[in-house]
């Protein structure tokens, strides 16, 4: 069986990892932008957030994009696991002594682990909010929208729940710290002039986005 170059080969798998990964990065920005509304804990802010949540779950174009998003997450995870398994198989006998720190960062070598942790987080996260929003038994707010805000506020009043989020965002940060720039490399976008810029943007992105995400539960916990 000849392997289709655009699906089966090792390089193609990497393109898809990169493309889905970068798409997820764009999603992170959009998601963060919306969620930052949670920092406004006034009654007015609550109504605005619930209206936003309704829009995000019902507007057709957003729905289409969201299916693409689910597909991307699943593909990124599935492809990643497949790659990780192949990689393990490629070295059946491990080294007795390896000084990998001398030539690469630990998080670049642990993308599969970090990704798995992010996936576990996603399950918790989606079960907690996304599932409830779609199929849960949520009350309605003053405007008659599903009151997601109250659910979120209740969740983030529990210290362990906040802790999961903060730790998960740290995990995400390391995943992005390697993943962002790595995606460009996988797509072949490497140029002596622009690669340093991509790397710097990647570091900025990997720090700022998770920090802001983590800020939300912490903020809500403190101000509850």
């Amino acid at each position: 069986m000849a392997r289709s170059a655009l699906l089966g080969s090792s390089l193609a798998k990497k393109y898809w990892m990169a493309l889905t990964g970068l798409f997820l990065c764009i999603f992170l920005i959009a998601h963060l932008a919306g969620n930052l509304q949670l920092l406004d804990m006034s009654p007015d802010g609550q109504l605005k957030f619930n209206a936003y949540a309704k829009f995000m779950t019902t507007f057709p174009l957003v729905k289409v994009v969201s299916y693409l998003l689910y597909a991307s997450i699943l593909f990124h995870a599935f492809d990643g696991i497949l790659l990780a398994l192949q990689n393990r198989k490629a070295r059946p006998v491990r080294y007795h002594y390896e000084k990998a720190g001398a030539n690469s960062t630990w998080y670049s070598r642990q993308m599969a682990l970090l990704g798995t942790l992010v996936l576990v987080f996603l399950v918790i996260h989606m079960k907690g909010f996304w599932y409830e929003m779609h199929w849960g038994d949520l009350g309605l707010d003053a405007d008659g929208n599903k009151d997601l805000y109250t659910l979120v506020a209740a969740a983030f009043s529990q210290p362990w729940y906040v802790a999961i989020y903060v730790v998960s965002m740290a995990v995400l940060a390391f995943h992005l710290l390697h993943g962002f720039a790595s995606a460009f490399q996988s797509l072949g976008l490497n140029h002596p002039r622009y690669t340093p810029l991509i790397k710097n943007v990647g570091v900025f992105f990997a720090v700022v986005v998770p920090v802001f995400f983590a800020l939300i539960p912490v903020w809500m916990f403190i101000n509850a």
């Binding site: 390089l11 192949q86 030539n103 690469s104 070598r109 490399q185 072949g188 002596p192």
Partner: peptide
């Protein structure tokens, strides 16, 4: 062989210092 995950270790340990740029070129 396994898949590249862009850790960059190869470039560091390569006795001839061959750059990751070449991997990117191959990807293109």
């Amino acid at each position: 062989f396994g898949n590249c995950s862009n850790t960059g270790a190869c470039e560091v340990e390569c006795p001839k210092g061959i750059s990751l740029e070449h991997i990117a070129r191959m990807n293109r």
